[in-house]
Design a protein around this nucleic acid. Structure first.
Length: 578
RNA sequence: GGCAGCGUAGCUCAGUGGUAGAGCAGGGGAAUCAUAAUCCCUUGGUCGGGGGUUCAAAUCCCUCCGCUGCUACCA
């Protein structure tokens, strides 16, 4: 459902990529990339848009990765943040701000939110039993304890679940338990006090809220949210025994929480707000950033994420905000529209960092420009089910859609114009019935395309976009200016002029998906504006946009075709086997 | 074990009660402006199996099978 007409601003957040290393294509397509495409679309439509992302930097894996790298954790995170920021830029992700969950802004907000929750009676202190490893000198999350599964005998079962028989476990169930870090069996159970968010008390309010969204959100999202509600919301620990994180303030919990930090899933979503504040501080916006998060503002707030993140965004974070809002003078906005994605698999299996299996953002950019990936990934986005990456499928899509249908269209029109009309937009003749029919068909298709984009249906959007490109080839084949020019120069001039206007149109319509190529395409017929707007006038008018007599700059090949040799080499390099 | 999603043409996927669809791949034709690129026509399916409801089922109900994920301290 599109935002209603009273909505003037769009706030977009992408799930925060975890700090621990370069992200793979599945991470990209599940959150950051669709968020970018939607942000570009909304900007092109003229809506005031704020697109926020950040690195999620706290938690056990960050500490362990830093340990592994032999770096202090803050130094490690600073370096990894820069790496991810640069890769985002390489993929043309148009963040208004790319923040850090370890920022001072987020620390302050997280502590304030916790104080409000404490004051409003939504937190309490409970003693839990945690595994402590003497050899590692730290508490271990359940899954960092390994041992023999009491059910199936698998000797490397994790403390939360046995990967072999899939049974849910408790670390104390394991036979011969040991630390997954050091392998040491010198572990013990210690009591540890932690803050709990009393989520159970929010079940009714959450269900009412989800009910109000269920017709609008993807079924993937609501079914996950309902599952949590139906099973009964449990109170959730929001602190951890770690060194790296937002410290629990002394005035919460009567001093029982000294030295503890907030759980990463408590502070990470707050960083959506924190990064907005970082953005304001970095760009001299003052306090206006707070308006973006007002509950009653005419702002549409849209979140993008992979399905693993859905419970935290439909239950955890909303609980935090509802609980804070109980005493807030300005109430915080909950998400209006939530787009969740499934996984992308690599030749039927998972992407794996440790096994160097699959394609990661840095390697992807080494071998091809961002637009190749952006288009392919969104055209095959895992919207209704997990999708599967293969090099053959990737190359087939790029070669057919981008090179043959779009790239070749731009090339054939501009080169014919250069060869037969001296590289200037031809004068003479007038649009007739064929051109009117084309404009009418384009009006229909662009309306459908626009609706799909508003609805964040990305596969359908790219299919419609492709169908629009095909209309260009159909028209040109029917009009056949290479034949007409032998007998009727004006008729040829009309169809070439139309072809060039179509080139400009395709740049406008393609820009959210392939921004860099769209600029090139636009530049072939007319200098491109910084922000290429979404066409909102009737096509009969838009397709008269180029001035006869103006020069064009025929493009070079826009999309090089991928060869069998390249595909074979990439399969070998990235471990792709069927 | 429980829960969720998925199962439709060779491949990737639309389609949620009313004559089974698209793109790619395959086959035939047209055209020669273009990256041998395009355009037109076309061959492919008892919609995972079985049972039921209905005038009518890919669609609703029951059951079974298969794949994937989640199962609250990984994020």
């Amino acid at each position: 459902m599109p935002p209603n007409s009273s909505v003037s601003r769009v706030l977009i957040t992408s799930a925060l990529p975890y700090i621990n290393g370069v992200k793979h294509l599945g991470n990209l397509v599940g959150s950051m990339l669709p968020a970018d495409i939607y942000a570009r679309f909304q900007r092109a439509r003229g809506r005031e848009t704020l697109f926020i992302c950040a690195t999620d930097e706290h938690g056990t894996p960050a500490e362990l990765a830093a340990l592994d790298a032999g770096q202090p954790v803050d130094v490690y995170c600073r370096e990894q943040h820069e790496i991810q920021k640069n890769l985002g830029a390489g993929f043309d992700l148009s963040w208004d701000y790319f923040g850090r969950s370890s920022s001072p802004e987020n620390r302050q907000l997280t502590q304030e939110f916790a104080r409000d929750l404490w004051r409003n009676g939504h937190l309490d202190v409970r003693t839990t039993r945690q595994v402590y490893s003497n050899a590692d000198g730290r508490f271990l999350p359940d899954r960092y304890v390994i041992g023999t599964c009491p059910h199936c005998g698998y000797d490397r079962a994790r403390g939360d679940q046995c990967e072999n028989c899939t049974r849910v476990l408790d670390p104390t169930d394991l036979i011969n338990p040991r630390s997954a870090l050091s392998g040491s069996p010198d572990i013990e159970i210690r009591d540890s006090a932690h803050l709990f968010l009393k989520q159970s008390a929010f079940a009714g309010r959450l269900r009412t809220w989800i009910d109000s969204k269920k017709d609008e959100w993807p079924q993937l999202v609501t079914s996950i949210a309902y599952k949590w509600l139906d099973e009964g919301l449990q109170d959730r620990g929001i602190t951890r025994d770690l060194a790296w994180g937002v410290p629990v303030p002394d005035d919460i919990g009567d001093g029982q929480l000294k030295g503890k930090v907030f759980y990463v899933w408590f502070d990470a979503p707050i960083e959506y707000i924190g990064a907005t504040w970082e953005w304001a501080n970095a760009t001299g916006k003052g306090d206006v950033w707070r308006d973006w998060w007002d509950e009653d503002a005419t702002t549409s707030y849209v979140e993008f994420m992979g399905k693993d993140n859905v419970p935290f965004h439909t239950v955890g974070f909303p609980c935090t905000l509802l609980g804070v809002n109980d005493s807030a003078s300005r109430k915080w906005k909950l998400v209006d529209r939530l787009k969740g994605f499934n996984w992308v698999n690599y030749y039927g299996g998972k992407f794996s960092t440790s096994q160097k299996r699959g394609v990661f953002m840095d390697a992807a950019l080494e071998i091809l420009p961002a637009d190749y990936w952006r288009y392919y990934l969104m055209a095959n986005a895992p919207e209704s089910a997990d999708s599967n990456f293969t090099w053959e499928h990737f190359a087939g899509t790029v070669n057919k859609d981008l090179a043959d249908v779009l790239g070749n269209f731009v090339n054939r029109v501009t080169r014919f114009c250069a060869a037969r009309f001296d590289g200037i937009v031809p004068e003479g003749g007038a649009y007739g019935p064929e051109e009117a029919a084309l404009a009418a068909e384009l009006d229909r298709r662009i309306a459908a395309y626009t609706d799909y984009m508003e609805a964040m249906e990305f596969r359908k959007s790219t299919a419609e976009l492709r169908a629009i490109w095909v209309l260009g080839n159909e028209y040109l084949t029917k009009a056949a200016p290479w034949t007409a020019i032998k007998t009727d120069r004006d008729r040829a001039a009309v169809s070439v002029r139309m072809g060039l206007n179509l080139v400009r149109l395709f740049a406008h319509l393609s820009a959210p998906f392939i921004p860099s190529s769209a600029k090139k395409i636009h530049g072939a017929v007319m200098a491109a504006p910084d922000l290429i707007p979404w066409p909102d006038q009737p096509m009969a008018q838009f397709l008269d946009g180029l001035t006869p007599g103006q020069p064009i700059q025929p493009s070079d090949v826009l999309f090089a075709k991928l060869t069998d040799e390249q595909i074979a080499a990439w399969e070998q390099r990235f471990g792709g086997t069927s």
